[in-house]
Write a protein that binds this DNA or RNA. Structure first.
Lengths: 126, 126
DNA sequence: GCTTGCCTTGACCTGGGCGTCAAGGCTTAC
DNA sequence: GTAAGCCTTGACGCCCAGGTCAAGGCAAGC
């Protein structure tokens, strides 16, 4: 299949596929006209990339998963490098969620104080 | 005080202050040499901006707070426009935190499955 | 008089993941 | 033969909050 069809089947764009190729993430064969040619396995790789991107992974972080699939594994996340990325991502997410919750709490306090400056947040007006 | 001193006292850089000026957020008076001149009130404005930036606010979102202070209020967040930004930010944070937690959960499941493919997460090996 | 240190403006660079032309080539349908 | 529709490469644009030169000016200290 050619680039347009692959893009359509994966719900993305040709520009994205060319970009992945420049990153060395999804290289393509070429036909006689110089057109890129892909097969079903490439669709699988692409879907793996897209899924992880949707999760907020950087492109580079998807590489171990793609290489894992390319190595013949049925899933991209069974390889040690992929698992390491998962674990790092969980740590990052936990840290980020924690920071966001802290910020949320601070803003909540400030909002309450600004809405009712007499309120000391303990319920006792000062 | 001049730009270098203000930047140092606020823990930021002169580049940042010039950038804020181009954005119309923190305009400066000029002395005879054309050098920017600031006073203590500007330091207060700048600290307000920095605090909100640290919370993850866009520069534009800090504008109501700055204008509130400039209007003479002792706090930048007592004005309606500032409160509206607070509320919008809380909603955004709640949505973002929710998404991140959902992603975190999905990755957690995938990690568990990939680490132990026999485990069905219910505790019963299949 | 010369260096040091502050300041000025202007302009390009960064990162991530593409979007959006521009100019051209090949094939197929009419 | 020509228009439509696919493809090619190259290159610039975008977003945001500044970073990082470059070239120059003015004042103080030695």
């Amino acid at each position: 299949m050619r680039i347009g069809e692959l893009a359509a089947r994966a719900g993305t764009t040709t520009r994205t596929l060319r970009y992945y190729e420049t990153r060395g993430l999804l290289p393509a064969r070429r036909d006689g006209n110089g057109h890129r040619t892909y097969d079903e396995a490439d669709l699988t790789l692409l879907r793996q990339i897209r899924t992880l991107q949707d999760f907020g992974f950087d492109l580079e972080e998807t590489r171990p998963f793609v290489e894992c699939l390319r190595a013949g594994h049925p899933e991209g996340d069974v390889c040690p490098a992929s698992l390491a990325v998962y674990r790092r991502k969980l740590d990052e997410l936990d840290a980020l969620i924690g920071e966001l919750q802290a910020v949320r709490a601070k803003i909540g306090v400030r909002l309450a104080l600004a809405e009712d400056p007499m309120c000391e947040l303990g319920g006792q007006g000062l």
